[in-house]
Write a protein that binds this DNA or RNA. Sequence first.
DNA 1: TTAATACATGAAAATATGTTCATATATTCA
DNA 2: TGAATATATGAACATATTTTCATGTATTAA
Lengths: 116, 116
Amino acid sequence: MNDTCIRVDEPLIKQMVQNLPDEQTINKISAIFQALQSDTRLKILFLLSQKEMCVCELECALDVTQSAISHSLRALRQLDLVRVEKQGRFAIYYLADDHIRTLIDLCNRHVTECST
Amino acid sequence: MNDTCIRVDEPLIKQMVQNLPDEQTINKISAIFQALQSDTRLKILFLLSQKEMCVCELECALDVTQSAISHSLRALRQLDLVRVEKQGRFAIYYLADDHIRTLIDLCNRHVTECST
DNA sequence: TTAATACATGAAAATATGTTCATATATTCA
DNA sequence: TGAATATATGAACATATTTTCATGTATTAA
């Protein structure tokens, strides 16, 4: 920690640190962003925002192995970003809720608005 | 690619794939999420959403080295999530715009609402 | 102009992540 | 029941990311 800088108002900084979300929340948030950071998982979410899909359909849409898709889906599932419904031998995946849709849209807009 | 599954309507899937944002956009979005995925960078953003800060202040607030903070800030800068204004020997950092604030808030709400 | 402060950065080491391969499980159909 | 289909998963490899270390640059103050 730096004690010498004249700009540092230590009590104020301490207060600001207290205003941070607690560690657990920070961890959960970063875990979500971590999941959204892979091209494959992002594409899966974009696709699922169009319609619910089984793994075969995702396999047809994306250019990666079935195994990679399953691993990606597990990560998304564990964060409750997508959910599964088993239908016989099929696993139908869909977005868990609309937060995630909003998140992606927002980010999409940020990129398209700012890069022009 | 899987051709046998009876659920796969290939023309439909092709259409859905066409609806995906282009590769460049996907890459930019995933880069943003990639940046938001680290605890350190997230905390920096939460702090900067309270007030603009120089590197020393961040150093005081966070329990990581100055070098690590600088590297984190560079990553955020390159994605235009934060910006710098040089004031003499100080580098004052602030959020680039409100998108990012909204993004964080949204995610925060998702976590706190869903985990109760 | 020298020393100290504030910040940045390249390279290497440590760690994490994603993908594939091999294989396992569950369901359906013949 | 046995074969085929749909999905899941552990382990290993390849790659990417993060952090630290060492050091560099720029600005200020003595």
